[in-house]
Computed example of a mutant assay.
Amino acid sequence: MGYFLIGLLVITLSMVNIIEEANCEISPTILSKIERMNRMGPYLGIVAPNNFELNPLLASQAFVPYPSLPIIDFAGRRFRFGKISNQRVVIVMTGLGMVNAGVATQLLVSLFRLKGVLHYGIAGNADVNLQIGDVTIPQFWAHSGLWNWQRYGDGIDNELALEAAGDYTREIGHLQFSKYSNRTDNLLNRIWYQPEEIFPVTGTPEVRQHVFWIPVDKSYFNLARQLENTKLPQCVNTTCLPRPPKVTIVERGMSASVFVDNAAYRTFLSSKFNVTAVEMESAAVALICHQQKLPFVVIRALSDLAGGGSDLSNEANLFGSLAAQNSVDVLVKFIGLIPHGAKFASSSSS
């Protein structure tokens, strides 16, 4: 009877933990693990978009998992602990798109003691002067998927809906669909790009601010300059790129929950905003870190020319794995540059 009661108690406690975690509450068991790992911090938070980019890092000799507690699973996320270049790290995968990236990054910064966030992965390329496999480190990031879609019939000078209330602006600019139509009339009219509403931790709760271009951390960015022109592998089996890929410092990258496989839109983004890396997560990571006043930098390797048009056929299918590995290699090199015990003040850059 005694063993039965003990077993029943264990099952009951386990069910309580399951229910708490299902409701996104932190169970005592998980909380104890989080507190234990935080006593060993602070960490560099490493954010990967998906398994395609995460697995090369986990398989590399650079990453050494903690033997006693290598993972903590919470809220559908797996947080991995270890060291890279003798720096303590906690790694999380976001999943596809801006919402997933924002949720995973907020969980990371809320649960664990961090001294900075490093985001890496692959991206589409909007700059025809760069090559597949090149690794870009942009100074600024923006979310290009927050729009005010103008009513058909309204002209370029017409006030946008809710513009007078301060909710929307025409300052950033617009995309007019009729410029890309073979017909004389286009019911899609135009969309105006919008800044994000943000609520910084140092601000007044529920009093919004606005930001469009989010700067990476100045100290991280200066460290990244030391990697510029680093040569990287250029071949997949016997198929090689025209030249060895390199690390390149660029001005801007853009994200939205839209896969850009369209040359006209790529050209528009490049000419309008001077962006290079185009993908689906980095701006969300940037927005979270910016609001939390946490230093961050983004490392994105170019896997294809967005929308095609280069002389390299099947770009992403052929060279995607090379780009993913290049992003991991540059991430590891960057971590090796960070002084041990370094504390960066904010995520601002100039």
Rank of each mutant, 00 (worst) to 15 (best):
Gln61Tyr: 08
Pro28Gln: 02
Arg36Glu: 03
Glu20Ser: 05
Thr184Leu: 10
Tyr3Lys: 10
Tyr43Pro: 00
Pro195Met: 03
Ala22Asn: 15
Ile26His: 04
Ser60Ile: 12
Thr202Glu: 07
Leu232Asn: 06
Leu96Phe: 13
Leu302Asp: 05
Ser270Pro: 00
Ile172Lys: 03
Glu196Ser: 07
Ala345Val: 15
Leu13His: 01
Gly155Gln: 10
Ala75Thr: 07
Phe268Glu: 03
Ala342Gln: 13
Ile34Phe: 12
Asn17Tyr: 12
Gly308Gln: 06
Pro28Met: 04
Val10Leu: 09
Leu223His: 08
Tyr193Arg: 01
Ala62Gln: 07
Phe52Arg: 02
Gly173Met: 08
Asn23Ala: 07
Asp217Gly: 04
Trp149Tyr: 11
Cys289Glu: 02
Glu196Asn: 05
Phe140Glu: 05
Trp147Ser: 00
Glu53Trp: 10
Asn17Phe: 13
Asn237Tyr: 10
Leu337Trp: 09
Leu31Met: 13
Leu227Glu: 02
Leu58Gln: 08
Pro138Glu: 03
Val47Ser: 03
Gln234Ser: 14
Ala264Tyr: 15
Gln87Lys: 11
Asn317Ala: 14
Val201Asn: 07
Pro56Leu: 09
Leu58Pro: 01
Glu197Gly: 00
Leu312Arg: 13
Leu57Tyr: 11
Ala277Leu: 06
Gly153Glu: 01
Asn229Ile: 06
Phe296Ala: 01
Leu162Tyr: 15
Glu196Trp: 06
Arg78Leu: 14
Leu318Ala: 04
Asn317Asp: 13
Ser14Asp: 07
Ile156Ala: 02
Trp192Phe: 10
Val298His: 05
Ala323Asn: 09
Pro339Ile: 04
Leu269Gln: 04
Glu21Gly: 03
His174Asp: 00
Gly153Tyr: 04
Ile71His: 12
Glu163Trp: 13
Gln87Pro: 06
Gln226Ala: 10
Ala256Ile: 07
Gly124Thr: 06
Pro195His: 04
Arg39Ile: 03
Asn237Cys: 00
Leu241Pro: 07
Val298Thr: 10
Asn326Gly: 09
Val278Trp: 05
Ser181Cys: 10
Ile30Pro: 00
Val201Met: 07
Phe74Tyr: 14
Leu269Met: 11
Asn38Ser: 08
Ile156Phe: 12
Gln325Pro: 07
Ala264Val: 11
Val92Lys: 09
Pro233His: 08
Val109Gln: 05
Ile214Asn: 02
Leu118Arg: 04
Leu111Ile: 03
Ala316Asn: 11
Val297Asp: 06
Phe221Asn: 08
Tyr152Phe: 12
Ile191Gln: 09
Met37Val: 11
